[in-house]
Design a protein around this nucleic acid. Structure first.
Lengths: 258, 258
DNA sequence: GGTGAATAATTGTCCGACAATCGTACTATT
DNA sequence: AATAGTACGATTGTCGGACAATTATTCACC
């Protein structure tokens, strides 16, 4: 009989012993979560923490690494003391996307997610965008349509991919809904690799994207939610055609660029 | 002149020295990302790693805590050796939701996210659900409609909240799209606290939810995507009414239950 | 008041140590 | 033969102390 079977049968729950470094981390995380420690506030030094918890400094350090990796602690560069910090959506989205990539998520899945999310985001953005957010969208679109010449005069093959991602990202910000924004960020990162290939291989892709962005911008500027949603739907559908023209296997796993 | 000003002006980029524990973590993470280390494979022991990297075991341990917290390493409980693991969407979603809570995301934002996502998820689930996934949905719905009696015969006040969350979660799984699934998980967790309040305070809430789940199940079982989407939209809209009846301030920040 | 040297505090890393636990091989019991 | 007990090495969790490099602070000095 397997151990699990025994556990499932018996009346006792497995008693969960947590090592000290984890309990220390949990204690500090709790204080951050309930806002006993405010953002930017410097944490006590390792020695002090060790004394307070009654553990060795090495143990405290292991706990700190854990919290640091969760984004709850950070260090301004060129400084020693750790400060409490709120995990940024950007940092989170990065880890999320690499996690998804590790699960071999397919291009289809990513594309479908965008098809679900982006039109709704466009609609919300058209309704609620501020002037600043609109400006950010314009800027991203501009960066894509007229890429800055590099010093050597030669563009990287798929120059502009970043601008496309930034455009979508700015769209997310323009919804004014952080939960919604975070929901689409991972998909955006995962779009990058396929999009790079596409822009590389499909000559007309760049122009089509630029056009779509112009229409979207016009709709969002005019606060025409309906139009924004429709154009976005077209835009995302167009991506799919682009992927196919580029010979991208939609059933293959996406990968995250390093 | 500030240090930043100097840095911005000068021709030199700030050389970023990374502490050893971070480089060790990055090295191991790289191997996991490029699949040199397969899932489930046991990692070398701390002493071996220390020898290979030429650092002290303490340093290795700090690196391991980092990777562990990222979900790249895990330990089967009751065992010593660490094994390589792919971060689970469940674990990720938890951290995401606490991160969002720390950013004081409002009930409105969470609700709107659900309103955007869930109808589409329902639609996709109706199209693609397998028999197993349908069974999981049924089970979650059953758990909510007929909660198991506890030993004392008394239910926790808002008994069943977990079942609701589980229902949505099962719905996400039924879409067969992991990216989409991950997108809605954080919002689900954040729903919990408001939902608990609502079920506690609004007597008819439980019955309304149960009815909605039945309709949804029927539609998904019949693979009627249109109906599934419509019922889900109604269902989520109903949540909002429930929140208002419960006197929940939609503009207040959600919190994550411990 | 600002400057710069002297001093203290802090982090990153190392070493060595030990108890508790896990895995395993081996033995004894029923 | 299957089970229970025993012995032993390997591994992790935790501790104490140490030291160099870097950062923060103090304080005299212009």
């Amino acid at each position: 009989m397997s151990l699990d079977a025994v556990r499932a049968a018996g009346p006792f729950e497995p008693l969960d012993y947590a090592p000290a470094y984890r309990r220390v981390a949990a204690a500090i995380a709790g204080r951050i979560a309930d806002r006993s420690f405010g953002e930017g506030e410097p944490l006590a030094t390792e020695t002090q923490l060790a004394a307070q918890f009654g553990v060795n400094r090495s143990t405290v350090r292991e706990a700190l690494r854990e919290l640091e990796s969760e984004g709850l602690l950070a260090r301004r560069k060129g400084t020693k003391r750790m400060v409490v910090s709120r995990p940024s959506t950007a940092g989170l989205a990065n880890r999320l996307s690499s996690a998804l990539a590790l699960q071999s998520v397919t291009v289809t899945e990513v594309w479908e997610t965008l098809l679900v999310l982006e039109p709704q985001l466009a609609e919300a953005a058209a309704r609620r965008r501020t002037a600043d957010q609109l400006a950010a969208l314009h800027q991203a679109a501009g960066r894509f349509a007229a890429p800055l010449p590099t010093s050597s005069g030669v563009h990287a093959p798929a120059f502009g991919v970043d601008a496309v991602v930034e455009f979508f990202s700015a769209l997310g910000a323009a919804t004014g809904n952080r939960a919604l924004q975070l929901a689409h960020e991972p998909a955006l990162r995962l779009l990058r690799s396929s999009l790079t290939l596409m822009i590389d291989r499909v000559p007309q892709a760049r122009a089509r994207i630029a056009t779509a962005q112009r229409r979207l911008l016009a709709a969002i500027e005019a606060r025409d939610a309906e139009a924004a949603r429709n154009w976005m739907t077209k835009h995302i559908r167009d991506f799919r055609r682009g992927f196919e023209l580029a010979g991208i296997d939609m059933a293959s796993a996406v990968d995250v660029a390093a």
